[in-house]
Write a protein that binds this DNA or RNA. Structure first.
Length: 500
RNA sequence: CGGGCCGUAGUGUAACGGCAGCACGAGUCUUUUGGGAAGAUUUAGUCCGAGUUCAAAUCUCGGCGGCCCGACCA
């Protein structure tokens, strides 16, 4: 009995010690939820202790990464002729009401501003949950002629949604940071082209630069953006088999232009309503995906192009010769990368672990051995390899690394999707696939309103949701099967996955 | 918004209704440094408000905040 008690004490003591360490105490694929919480705190991405529910403080490391994300997104949008704006944060309630589906969809999550000083406003003002009803109010004043079209805008903004569900840092909080684009086109066809362009932008930036794998779906009728005619959304996959909705692009058609009077005079002198589209990459959530998709049991792994510090030089000993060589390297590398020398008084091992947690792509270790042998030791975070490189080859080696490191992370991430999509012909099988962390591909009666009841049954029996039809399969694959739920002939092939 | 759990130094954890303790961190000094160094020394805490009680971190109520699970979303 006594020994049992003593053993318990020892276990407790050891456990306490593990929890005190600065490293991650769980493996990503064993307890994903806990892993994510720890990375956010231990890599100092956000402080969750701000005293308003659902709001948090973004710390420098995440802010610097997100600044880079903004810059890639904005550069791409501007190349595609979107013009930047900053719109007000407040939107009068009457604006929100101008499109009926929109107001119904958003009302439950609006923060309202009702007074200024001690004076009550006659009309409530919304803290923008999204800015359609702010932009289109002005579009109606700005757009006169077909010569003004296409009218392509965007803004970087923080938006507010009164989420009722427990929030998760970066993935879901009551204030989040994004870019929203709003475009007016002369014809439906032009608007459709814009949606294609938005999807292409998503691929160019989120996949090719940030290394995130995703599938674009057309959402079913019951899951569209409030007020949209058609909604297309990219789902990024988490390692635990759940998907996260990332940028979505919407064909708003003419509902909003009619509500706000966004009209133009055509070449024929006749008045027409504009065709509106909008697109919303949520940078703070995209950041979450970068953390989740690339991170490992040691912490973050940042693609070269997103890392605030790309190369860190770690002097192993405090020795004048070592410091001189570190300075030397610093100046050479600064010409094409952000470099930092870790001068802290921590032990070598602790420095190594610290920078691995932060996800810095390249580390250079410098000690007396390297001085003697005219070499340096280079550690790369993407593959975990450590190599001794001759001094004269260092620059070339790191330049090459810079080019391929993002691609390596991208390829590693792309692979994840391969085995996860599994065909199913009945709900029992679908449930099995979902429970083993997969995504189901199956026949489905309809993604129009008449399919909603079958969708409810899918949710009921699998706990997962119908994500929609895969965009690049629309019209290409003939669906010959039957609906996985009702057994009627399947008009669509859809995908089913659990969601974050 | 419903159901469950929770709030003690910066962090993680102890204390039957009866002296709030331990570890890590942080500060200073010395010795160290090739995968989470050591000694000396200093530092700091019961979420907020009310109630019960001789006595509350502990019990009750309210507020604020967090975590998990469901309906909503980017």
């Amino acid at each position: 009995m006594k020994t049992e008690k003593a053993a318990k004490e020892v276990v407790k003591e050891i456990k306490g010690k593990i929890e005190d360490t600065k490293g991650l105490t769980v493996k990503k694929n064993e307890d994903f939820s806990e892993w994510y919480t720890q990375v956010v705190q231990k890599a100092e991405l956000a402080d969750l202790r701000y005293n308003v529910k659902g709001f948090l403080v973004f710390q420098p490391w995440s802010v610097m990464v997100m600044e880079k994300m903004y810059s890639y997104l904005e550069k791409t949008l501007q190349q595609k002729r979107h013009k930047p704006y900053f719109f007000p944060t407040l939107i009068p309630e009457s604006n929100l009401k101008r499109e009926s589906t929109h107001i119904i969809g958003f009302t439950p999550e609006v923060f309202w501003v009702t007074e200024g000083g001690d004076k009550k406003f006659e009309e409530r003002l919304a803290l923008r949950p999204t800015s359609e009803t702010a932009f289109y109010q002005m579009f109606s004043l700005w757009i006169r002629s077909y010569k003004d079209l296409p009218f392509k805008t965007y803004q970087r903004a923080n938006v507010f949604r009164y989420e009722t569900k427990a929030t998760r840092p970066f993935l879901r909080s009551r204030e989040f940071h994004w870019i929203e684009t709003h475009c007016v086109h002369a014809t439906e066809k032009d608007a459709e082209k814009q949606v294609l362009e938005d999807m292409q932008t998503t691929k160019e930036v989120l996949h090719d630069v940030f290394g995130l794998p995703f599938i674009f779906f057309e959402r079913p009728a019951w899951d569209k953006f409030p007020g949209a005619d058609r909604t297309f959304a990219a789902d990024v996959l988490n390692p635990d088999g759940r998907v996260v909705q990332q940028p979505s692009t919407h064909l708003l058609s003419q509902a909003f232009s009619k509500g706000f009077g966004v009209k133009y005079t055509g070449a024929d002198g006749k008045e027409n309503y504009g065709w509106i589209t909008c697109y919303g990459p949520a940078v703070s959530r995209i950041f979450a995906s970068v953390v989740i998709v690339h991170g490992d049991d040691k912490g973050l792994r940042l693609p070269w192009n997103l890392a605030p510090i790309q190369v860190v030089i770690v002097p192993i000993v405090d020795d004048p010769k070592v410091m001189e060589k570190a300075d030397n390297l610093y100046h050479k590398l600064s010409s094409f990368s952000n470099v930092e020398i870790d001068m802290t008084n921590k032990s070598a091992g602790e420095k190594f672990n610290h920078w691995e947690m932060k996800g810095v792509p390249v580390r250079i270790d410098l000690g007396l051995k390297d001085i003697k042998e005219k070499s340096v030791t280079i550690f790369r975070r993407d593959t975990g390899e450590k190599k001794v490189i001759r001094e004269e080859n260092v620059l070339g080696y790191i330049k090459k690394l810079a080019e391929e490191s993002g691609k390596i992370l991208m390829r590693q991430a792309d692979k994840v999707f391969d085995d996860l999509i599994i065909n199913a012909t009945d709900l029992k099988k679908a449930k099995q696939v979902i429970e083993s962390g997969g995504i189901v591909r199956c026949g489905f009666c309809s993604i129009e309103k008449d399919g909603a009841s079958c969708s409810d049954k899918v949710e009921e029996s699998t706990g997962a949701k119908v994500r929609g039809r895969k965009f690049d399969e629309i019209g290409k694959t003939k669906t010959s099967g039957v609906c996985i739920v009702c057994g009627k002939p399947a008009k669509e092939t859809v995908y089913i996955a659990r969601e974050y």
